[in-house]
Amino acid sequence: MGYLLDSIRALGVTAKNIGRKPVTVQFPKVIRERQERYRTSFALLKDEQGEERCVGCLACERICPSQIIHMSSTKKESPVTGKKRGYLDDFTLDMTACIFCELCVQVCPFDAIVMLKVPHEPGYVREDLVLTMAKLYENAEKPLTWGNGTKLMEMQEPPKPAPAQAAAPVPAPAAAPVPAAVPVPAAAPAPAPVPVPASAAAAEPAKTEAP
């Protein structure tokens, strides 16, 4: 009898769901609205004067956990500013092994490499999945995602003590009782915890503590 009643309840649930709108998104025809930070594929940017931002500093090539970025560059005189700087000879990014960790975007000091908001088109051969320099510059026309090196770094920088203290109101911790025995480290947000030794705080490639 229990089987019967519970079965009827289950039948009721499915009947209820017939009335709900289908949630399926028919992908190629309808494209789901992507969030601002949605990230896939890559693009290389040029600056306002139409000059390539990338100077071939190898930061992204070094940080990439999958080691899929390869580049070579030469130093030339810039036609715009007249200063000597690096120019890319070649740049490839192998999407077959990319894990979309966004580290290359984060480390780029010139905001040259950014990620796209639209996915990479599937290819028929593996070569289609390798982003060459030309493809990367073409991709710059497509909608870009929110993040670039500067913004990501800004977001992660430990807050400067003075302005942070002024801006941040201290919200009450949640209503839940706090176990008395447990020490609460750094309950106040104000003095930003800077465990990094002071010497490293300013240096650009942060050399952290070496015991």
């Binding site: 977001m155 920088e157 430990p158 947000p189 104000a190 930003a192 915890p193 942060a206």
Partner: peptide, 10 residues
Amino acid sequence: PEGGINGGKP
């Protein structure tokens, strides 16, 4: 709470 989200260096 408000505040920074990263204690180390990015």
